[in-house]
Amino acid sequence: MLIRRHAINEASYRTYFFSALLMNRVTDDASPRPALTDLAFHILIALGSGPAHGYAIGKDVEEQSGGRLDPSTGTLYQALHRLKEEGLIASVEPPERSDERRKYFQLTERGRRVAEAEARRLHTLVRTARKRKLYPQQA
């Protein structure tokens, strides 16, 4: 059951991600994009505090989501690759004395703007939900 749920989640990540890609098509427009997938946003948040490699990003995503998101290596790198293609993250040189196999990523300026926009959007949504008593008020 757990495998099936995770497999469905994996598939849904891919579907949502690709739907978003297709909806947005390919443009040269560097303006921030609308909705990010869950995983993509978590990755951007994980990179918000500085460059990190794939394993660390995955651990961070799992921790941020309280265990709800635990992408497989393939799914994680697929998402990293998409974000890199979109120009939201970039590869960087690894620090000295690190394992040479590791690949480090960091947020680009565009990625930072997109993450901020997504955070603002979610903040607006939460505020609206609070007003409509769908979400507990802040203490």
Partner: peptide, 22 residues
């Protein structure tokens, strides 16, 4: 099992799926 499925899914998608078309 999840890791293998994730990798295979990504490989298939890169070879023949939407990313290739895109």
């Amino acid at each position: 099992a999840r890791e293998l499925a994730g990798l295979i899914g990504w490989l298939l998608s890169e070879r023949w799926g939407a990313p290739a078309r895109l």
